[in-house]
């Protein structure tokens, strides 16, 4: 049984259709990647799963039971935790305070600082982040490490499904690698992960399923054995659109533009795209 299953989900804002007919599922120890360009509807989709918005059509099931979340809190209570790209942490606060922020361990009127320090350090270590000092402001950590703290925090507080909103978008190659490793680690711990990204090179190595979005519609939903990395990249690059772009550049005239157009055409050939046919 899937932890999270969307069937034919759509979302309208007034007369604007932001999303329609989306199918998605993630089970235990699975990573489902959601790929799409800007404006493809990725954030609308996460907001529905995370409980910030309600879907207008289709069904949303958690553990086989249909749900309608009114707030992120309700989603969290079902074990669905979201780690947002920029909203993960408070930079000036120490790591351990960030780790427990919003869910502090109380002790009498105060809180159990010793327990929280120890737990934060141990939990991060379990995720493979060996910090020198959990007292250091989290702003002193690298971008990748900050994401990882946010991920391990969600895991510690009982997340069964992790939604990661473009965790690698602002990171360099090495840091992205670190984050991808934690995604796999979370999967090994039995979590379901929904990984939102626009980078097929990040998605392919860790994903079990791939949902491609374009202009609010599903462009395809594949299991790993049904699609190759190149096909995924080609789909993401927008197939026919790449061609169009090259024509556009060509028409723009000028030697440089023509050269760029040639390059694009070449690239789309290498990716195995023939106009009009998507795998």
């Amino acid at each position: 049984m899937s932890l999270v299953q969307l069937t034919g989900v759509g979302k309208n804002y007034g007369n604007i259709t932001a999303l329609s007919g989306i199918d998605l599922e993630v089970g235990e120890s699975e990573v489902t990647c959601v790929l799409g360009d800007n404006g493809a509807g990725k954030s609308t989709l996460i907001k529905i799963i995370a409980g910030l918005h309600q879907h207008s059509s289709g069904t949303y099931e958690v553990n086989g039971r249909e749900v309608h979340f009114n707030s992120p809190r309700e989603a969290l209570d079902e074990g669905i935790a979201t780690v947002y790209q920029d909203l993960a942490v408070v930079p000036l606060m120490p790591v351990w305070r960030n780790f427990f922020l919003g869910q502090e361990k109380r002790k009498g009127l105060g809180m159990d600082s010793a327990f929280m320090r120890k737990t934060a350090k141990q939990e991060l270590l379990d995720m493979g982040i060996d910090l020198r000092d959990v007292e250091q402001p989290i702003g002193t950590l690298s971008g990748g490490e900050r994401q990882c703290v946010a991920i391990s925090r969600a895991v510690y507080f009982g997340a069964k499904v992790l939604i990661l909103d473009e965790p690698t978008a602002a990171l360099g190659v090495k840091q992205s690698g670190v984050v991808l490793r934690y995604i796999l680690q979370a999967r090994e711990r039995g979590l379901g992960v929904i990984f939102i990204t626009h980078n097929p090179h990040h998605a392919f190595p860790v994903g079990d399923r791939f949902l491609l979005l374009k202009r609010g519609r599903s462009l395809g939903y594949y299991r790993k054995d049904e699609i190759s990395r190149d096909e995924l990249t080609a789909l993401m690059a927008g197939g026919a659109e790449l061609e169009e772009l090259s024509h556009e550049l060509d028409r723009g005239g000028g030697g440089v533009a023509a050269a760029a157009a040639k390059m694009l055409e070449q690239e789309s050939k290498e990716l195995g795209i023939t106009p009009g046919s998507t795998p």
Binding site: L87, P91, L92
Partner: peptide
């Protein structure tokens, strides 16, 4: 106290984690 530091330091982050 944790919450006070958090809302001053990054209120959107604080809201996102349930403060």
């Amino acid at each position: 106290g944790n919450w006070i530091f958090a809302v001053g330091g990054a209120d959107a982050s604080a809201r996102a984690v349930g403060v």
